[in-house]
Amino acid sequence: MIYSSELIKGTLKTIVLKMLEDNRKMYGYEITQKVKELTKDRIQLTEGALYPTLHALENDGLLTTETEYIGKRVRKYYSLSPSGKGKARERVSELADFMETMKLLLDIQVKPA
């Protein structure tokens, strides 16, 4: 099952920040692949959503970038800035809290592991 884009939209920043927290530096394609792999294809980030978000996070000072030349093309690596690290933890715990609340609100029975 692939989740609807509305669900992804609200959590995209958190996903990107978490990916970068765990992997130090990544480029755009790598992030989409990593997310796809970790979620067993269930979350597929679209390019149309990922890159605007990356640029916005960079503009907010949460990400730093470095570029690498690969033949004629340039690859842009993203990593967390000091304030981005704090933000990543904050967003992840906020989302975890939110999920707990949603479980209560929607009366979801959590299947025992």
């Binding site: 480029y27 755009g28 394609y29 989409t32 390019e47 890159y51 990356l54 640029h55 570029t67 690969i70 093309r73 340039v74 690859r75 842009k76």
Partner: peptide, 12 residues
């Protein structure tokens, strides 16, 4: 910036 990002992404 966006051109380069998309270019690399497509190439990948």
């Amino acid at each position: 910036d966006l051109q380069l990002n998309l270019l690399d992404h497509i190439c990948c």
